[in-house]
Amino acid sequence: MKRSTRRRLVQGVLYAVLAALLLALVLAADWADIKTQFFASAGWTSWDSWGPLITVGAKNTIIYTVIAFAFGLLLALVLALMKLSPLGPYRWLATIYVEFFRGLPALLVIIFMAFGIPIAFQWTPPGGTVGAGLLALVMVGAAYMAETLRAGIQAVPKGQTEAARSLGMSSGRTTVTVVLPQAFRIVIPPLTNEFVLLIKDTALLSVIGMQVGEREVTTVARDFFSSGPTAGTATSLVQAAALYLVITIPLTQLVAWLERRQRRTR
């Protein structure tokens, strides 16, 4: 058999297998159940469902993400600069922090901050239970972003620092004026990725008790599981999934575009 004939044959078989699998899936699926369970019109066409999902859930998801990202980035910047400090103890502290929180499940930290700390110290972080959960997201997110920022800072060529210092700029001035602006440009794509991860991680807050007005998308959707127009079906969860994708897919596309552009300008 000729090499090209054999290659066409192999490809034909692969396509046939795929087509057979899809056909089996379509035939085996219970389309009636899928429609009533996941796409109940009482949910998809009703503002009673979309209203709370969007005006409460999506709104809070976005607010929580922005808060956790902003404070996380601030803490991450401090950690990254500590990690690059000439003073040993600063480096060690930052390393311990980063390794500690990168090695823990975010869920565990959230529960610890929301329940463990208040019970241990009779003290609740500002913002109550939600505040405690957000604080946990900040602490965990900062550990990841600190590594990203450190890599970005180190990716700025050494000649940039040398040029700034030779002009008489102090070390701090050089960092602020010359190094950090370039480092941030380098880390915009990975930081956007961290942002997307945070959007999804806010769903973990649903394990802590939240007031009705504080709930984010996943918690709102879970409530509709037990009460509301689509109670007893998973419709609200599928709606929530659609909301997440509407937010996250444009962002991941943005990251891909930024990365392509960055490669071009190098």
Partner: peptide, 20 residues
Amino acid sequence: LDAVRSRIGMVFQQFNLFPH
């Protein structure tokens, strides 16, 4: 040192202009 350096102009092989 910063004051001394500010009186010494330095030109590098790789230019090292600030690209941003």
